[in-house]
Design a protein around this nucleic acid. Structure first.
Length: 630
RNA sequence: GGGGGCGUAGCUCAGUUGGUUAGAGUGCCGGCCUGUCAAGCCGGAGGUCGCGGGUUCGAGUCCCGUCGCUCCCGCCA
């Protein structure tokens, strides 16, 4: 299999001529034929004809073929015969034009080659654990363990370069608009996003803890109170929650905050940043972006981050079945619940497929799934057909726009939110199953008009949908009806950013904290510094944060943000390369005034670590040297 | 915390109903080879079937446990 590295051509300014090189591999294109040049890089592939030896030399810019003639440079040819994959070399020679019949159209440098005079082997490579010159699938934990090799391949390197360009474009757009890039601390007080904090014990203040920031939220508000007015930061954020394909324990946001702004100002800046960034990735979008209120997103798409690249919209059938004698529907509707359906279209699904979908929606909290194939005479092939009247079936068909042969999938649930989100998940499942997304299609949408609070049944309290510093709209004495000045930006079903206007009135801030169950004493204890700052003339302000990892992954077409991060964690939060997290020396724990209640760390599986594992050895692992293996 | 999938040669994978000596491609090693570019031809080495236990005359295959990877729910913007 070939490698994207073969076709790579990153245009780079010529390097300063030194002992190693004076030209990038693909920089040879700009050099005159006949010139003596020097290049350095890795032996990407070799083709040894016994007489002639060809080496594809790879550096960051791409690939250049080197040819070693035994009669032109006997010594270099001799050495070249010993080269193996990933050996590091420097080659000096004459740049020549290939004869017409030996041109390789698959290489940007395919019309050229370097006729070697002199070869220096700078470093030898053992046989790599996987092929660097091949972009085929390799187990991800092996790739992560040898990420430095993975980064050389044609799969990850271009995404890392894209990430750089995205960040530079962000800076460019914001710098032009007079934003200041300001850094905020990573050793902080716990912030209120609601995720679990990563905690760092203080050595010099026994019993006290820093929290790594879940976001720079409070600091950026303090910057507004500090008169910075326009702030941004490429900020690392930390949340100690379980991972997903789009979630890492540490991730990066473009964090933005502005003073004396309305929501429209924040939206306008964000659209300017995003459209410039997407254009950098070859995706051209029109501004202003579409907007949709939260209630509509939940109703039509069953999600607060709707994927608009395909239909399968959710249809409310409450009216259709309002007087139904079908007991399931009747009891759900009389209990304040809802009956909703998706018209999946004309699909060939077996009974086993339908059972699988039923289990799927159950996994998302729904009690079950009603399926029905619409037949020619208006009848339904469905387990519940006999319980429904002709009129109900006809009305449901009309409401869903169903044609003969279409499959209707319905969920009935007393909890409206559960019915909506289960169908939202089903909608994504169907889109994957039937491959409804057109490659290259991208849809951006603002989701706006969020409720300020949502009732947490488990804890019997109101929780903020965003965070407690979001500016509320409406009657503060009626939490259920409060809306917030918040806005999420959604791309292809991924929430890539969110923000809001903030509270700048201490009275309102106190009130909101009180509503969500934080009394004055606790508010003072946790956020006293912010409440204090609000007393001294806080400007109206607002902002937003964009998830950089997700954005880069989306532009690159990657399935996971791990592909957009140079050194990501595995799905269990481990780093197979360094072996983190690991036990520490007992003395370090003592210095931090800590005692561990955890059992001695269990050694990693020997086959996963590998006999030649370069992970830290046992002496670095167990806190008490009790580590039984490795 | 829970559910699904995966784990067989360095890598990517196949392996039938539990039955002889576990295969393929690629890589690796050796030889030949002066215009290849996924070089070619010939030969060769390479396996704790993740790990532990069990059932069985017999386990890569069945059962239990465990570790790792991955997707999802919970959790988390």
């Amino acid at each position: 299999m070939s490698s994207a590295a073969d076709g790579r051509h990153e245009p780079l300014a010529p390097p300063r001529a030194n002992a190693y090189r004076d030209t990038w591999a693909t920089g040879a294109i700009e050099q005159p034929v006949g010139k003596e040049i020097a290049v350095s890089g890795w032996a990407h592939r070799r083709r040894d004809h016994g007489g002639l030896v060809f080496i594809d030399l790879r550096d960051r810019s791409g690939v250049l073929q080197i040819v070693f003639h035994p009669e032109h440079a006997a010594e270099a040819h001799e050495q070249a015969g010993s080269l193996r994959a990933e050996d590091v070399v420097s080659v000096r020679g004459k740049l020549v034009r290939r004869s017409d019949e030996t041109i390789n159209p698959n290489l940007p440098t395919g019309h050229l080659e370097l006729q070697a005079n002199e070869l220096t082997i700078l470093a030898r490579s053992e046989t790599p654990p996987f092929q660097v010159d091949d972009d085929g699938h390799v187990d991800e934990s092996l790739r992560l363990k040898h990420r430095y090799l993975d980064l050389r391949r044609g799969t990850i390197a271009p995404i890392i370069a894209l990430r750089h360009r995205v960040i530079q474009k962000m800076r460019e757009v914001l710098n032009e608009r007079d934003f200041l890039e300001v850094e905020t601390p990573n050793l902080t007080r716990p912030t209120p996003e609601g995720a679990r904090d990563y905690l760092v014990p203080s050595r010099v203040r026994p019993g006290n803890w820093y929290a790594l920031p879940q976001s720079p939220q409070l600091y950026k508000q303090l910057l507004m109170m500090g008169g910075i007015e326009r702030y941004y930061q490429i900020a690392r954020c930390f949340r100690d929650e379980d991972l997903r394909a789009d979630r890492q324990p540490e991730f990066t946001q473009l964090d933005i905050e502005m003073s004396f702004v309305e929501g429209e100002d924040v939206i306008e800046v964000t659209e300017a940043v995003l459209s410039a960034v997407l254009a950098e990735g070859g995706i051209h979008v029109e501004t202003p972006f579409q907007r949709m209120c939260y209630a509509e997103a939940m109703g039509r798409f069953g999600s607060d981050s709707p994927d608009l690249r395909y239909g399968l919209e959710i249809v409310n059938l409450d009216k259709v079945f309002a007087g139904s004698e079908f007991k399931v529907f009747a009891s759900v509707l009389s209990g304040g619940g809802t009956v909703r359906a998706i018209n999946a279209g004309a699909r060939e699904l077996s009974r086993a497929d339908l059972d699988e979908l039923t289990e799927f929606v159950r996994g998302h909290g729904a009690g079950g799934l009603v399926w029905a194939f619409v037949e020619e005479d208006g009848g339904w092939r469905s387990p519940i057909a006999k319980f429904l009247s002709d009129q109900e079936r006809a009305d449901a068909v009309a409401a869903t726009g169903a044609q003969t042969g279409d499959l209707l999938l319905a969920v009935a649930d007393t909890d409206v939110h559960t019915a909506a989100t289960a169908l939202g998940a089903l909608r994504r499942n169907l889109a994957d199953r039937f491959e409804l997304v057109q490659p290259g299609d991208h849809r951006l949408v603002w989701v706006v008009d969020f409720p300020m609070l949502e009732w947490n049944e488990g804890e019997k309290r109101w929780d903020p949908l965003h965070h407690p510093f979001t500016a509320p709209r409406g009657d503060l004495s009626d939490p259920a009806t409060l809306m917030s000045d918040a806005y999420d930006i959604v791309m292809d079903g991924w929430e890539i950013g969110g923000g809001s206007l903030r509270i700048n009135d201490p009275v309102v801030q106190h009130k909101i904290l009180e509503v969500i169950g934080i009394d004055a004493a606790e508010a003072q204890e946790r956020f006293g510094f912010l409440l204090e700052a609000l007393k001294y003339g806080a400007p109206p302000h607002g902002g937003l944060a964009l998830g950089l990892d997700r954005l880069v992954a989306l532009i690159a077409g990657a399935d996971s943000i791990r592909d957009a991060i140079a050194f990501p964690k595995s799905a269990t939060g481990a780093d197979p390369l360094t072996g983190a997290p690991a036990g520490v020396d007992e003395r370090q724990i003592r210095d931090l005034h800590l005692v561990s209640t955890a059992p001695p760390p269990v050694a990693a599986d020997a086959s996963a670590a590998g006999p030649d594992s370069e992970a830290p050895d046992a002496s670095d692992l167990g806190a008490s040297g009790a580590d039984p293996k490795v």
